[in-house]
């Protein structure tokens, strides 16, 4: 049992919930329900949906894969170096995504620091490709992974590592078999957050990967373009985005916030 919720808190909380829900409900009110089947059958819509799902899932996995070592490193460090590194890793979360996209261009674009060398060496061009979309999405999603996992790693009793060492497990085995499984719920939470961020990503994607229908035009980009030509199509696609996101957040709710 808990103390009763103060009435003020309850009223404010309900008002805020209503405030957040209103725009979403208003959007639903405008959705052209009768036209939805024909809209969603259009090629550029199905392309965008498939592309969005593929790229966001790939980006979430890449962000996890790359973010976990960084989280482990940061959880072991203190002092100025750690603070600066952490701030840098958090930047893509704070920066306008367009700035992130521009920064990616300067690095991996065809004239970029690494991009031109990459193109000369292997012929691979990241911008205007699925790889570019995934890279842009992973870039903005990574801070969520680092933040979430570092937090729970810091909360973990370091003696578990000693226990593993006392049983003869080397550092890597300890990490894979003991430490990461023990923060499993936050690894899952980090993956969901990263995926959600990647699915809704717009600015970095359009800046870095462009807006090529069927190739790099993700659902948010398609919505943006359709807002000027066919608003009803934009609404239908927004509905799809809302339903997919809501569905995943609801399925993952228990893993995300472990039940008390």
């Amino acid at each position: 049992m808990r103390t009763r919720l103060p009435r003020r808190v309850r009223i404010v909380a309900l008002l805020v919930i209503a405030l957040v829900a209103t725009p979403l409900i208003s959007l639903l009110l405008r959705v052209p329900w009768a036209r939805i089947p024909s809209i969603l059958r259009q090629e550029f819509v199905t392309d965008a949906l498939v592309l969005s799902l593929t790229s966001s899932v790939l980006a979430a996995f890449i962000a996890l894969f790359l973010g976990i070592p960084v989280a482990i490193l940061l959880s072991r460090l203190d002092g100025l170096f750690a603070s600066v590194t952490r701030a840098v890793m958090m930047l893509p979360m704070v920066l306008p995504p367009v700035v992130g996209g521009a920064a990616l261009l300067f690095a991996f674009g065809r004239r970029g620091t690494l991009g031109s060398a990459l193109e000369d060496a292997s012929g691979v061009v990241l911008p205007y490709s699925l790889g570019g979309v995934v890279l842009a999405n992973a870039f903005v999603a990574m801070p969520f992974v680092v933040l979430t996992i570092e937090g729970s790693l810091r909360g973990l009793d370091s003696r578990f590592e000693l226990a593993a060492a006392s049983l003869g497990a080397n550092e890597f085995r300890t990490m894979i078999k003991v430490v990461l499984p023990m923060v499993r719920s936050s690894v899952i939470a980090a993956g969901v957050l990263a995926w959600a961020r990647a699915l809704g990503e717009f600015g970095a994607t359009i800046t870095f990967a462009g807006n090529i229908p069927g190739k790099t035009q993700t659902l948010p980009l398609a919505v943006f373009v359709a807002m000027e030509t066919d608003q009803e199509a934009a609404l239908a696609m927004s509905l799809v985005l809302i339903l997919v996101s809501l569905g995943v957040l609801l399925t993952m709710r228990d893993r995300w916030w472990p039940a008390r």
């Binding site: 807006n211 090529i212 373009v225």
Partner: peptide, 8 residues
């Protein structure tokens, strides 16, 4: 022009 990027 299907492979072109569509800028705002």
């Amino acid at each position: 022009l299907s492979g072109t990027t569509r800028e705002p």
